[in-house]
């Protein structure tokens, strides 16, 4: 019986050269606040460099809520430039009529309105969407993360139960917990969540970063090295405090 079902499915998929599947992955949204800022790409690129592999070739939706009343920019060219930095714009959301026409010209899909519609006036040219924290299962890693390896929790927290070696990278949208020595690099809040924190049993990280704010090993107070530490973000600085 099982067999028969399987072969039927097989038949169908063979007669059609494709299969329509209903899944949609989470897509990053890039809210444009001042797309005409001459430094726009430079600032964006600098921002994403803190977790470059996470953003590499990532599909991106341009959120136009904050600029929809303005004259549209040349989206075709803009999309081209993003692609040159290996970001892949796939569509727009929260666009007005003029922007919709421009999006169509640029071959971008129109996504249903999402995020908070209010155009919160930010001072930064790029503000990654601050995803309101939905409870997401944490990613748990039990094996050592070796030099050269990367572990990324694109959603939620990352819990590592084994050492993170020199030259290893771990990243999470939420908090990072390392119940072992942390010797590599750790990036928490990679989608811009400044309330994310990093906890580790033995701090000797090459670099720690929260929402793009970072310190390198040399800047860490030596009294904290080798200790249990909690790292949080306060404005444009990281705060490192010993844990009991």
């Amino acid at each position: 019986m099982q067999r028969e079902v399987a072969s039927t499915t097989d038949q169908t998929s063979r007669s059609l050269p494709f299969q329509v599947r209903g899944s949609l992955q989470a897509v990053l949204a890039l809210r444009l606040l001042d797309p005409e800022d001459p430094e726009f790409l430079a600032k964006l690129v600098e921002k994403i460099a803190y977790a470059p592999d996470f953003y590499r070739d990532a599909p991106i939706v341009l959120d136009l809520a904050a600029v929809t009343d303005r004259e549209p920019i040349d989206l075709l060219q803009f999309a081209e430039e993003l692609r040159r930095h290996r970001l892949v714009p796939v569509g727009v959301q929260n666009a007005g009529a003029a922007w919709l026409a421009e999006a169509e010209r640029a071959g971008l899909a129109v996504f249903a309105a999402g995020g908070r519609g209010d155009a919160a006036a930010g001072t930064r040219a790029v503000q990654p969407p601050r995803a309101s924290r939905r409870p997401t299962a944490a990613t748990v890693v039990r094996e050592p993360v070796r030099g050269g390896q990367q572990v990324v929790a694109g959603e939620g927290d990352l819990v590592v139960l084994a050492p993170v070696g020199h030259g290893a990278e771990i990243a999470a949208a939420g908090h990072i917990h390392v119940y072992a020595p942390l010797r590599g690099r750790a990036y928490a809040g990679i989608e811009g969540d400044e309330s994310a924190m990093i906890f580790c049993d033995q701090l000797d990280a090459e670099l720690v970063s929260i929402a793009g704010v970072y310190v390198v090993n040399e800047e860490i107070d030596t009294a904290l090295l080798g200790r249990r530490v909690r790292i949080s973000c306060m404005g444009d600085r990281l705060h490192l405090a010993p844990l009991p």
């Binding site: 790409l41 690129v45 600098e46 460099a49 470059p52 930095h85 290996r86």
Partner: peptide
């Protein structure tokens, strides 16, 4: 590698 691939100056 960041300079080559990620637009870091």
């Amino acid at each position: 590698v960041n300079v080559i691939n990620d637009g870091i100056r």
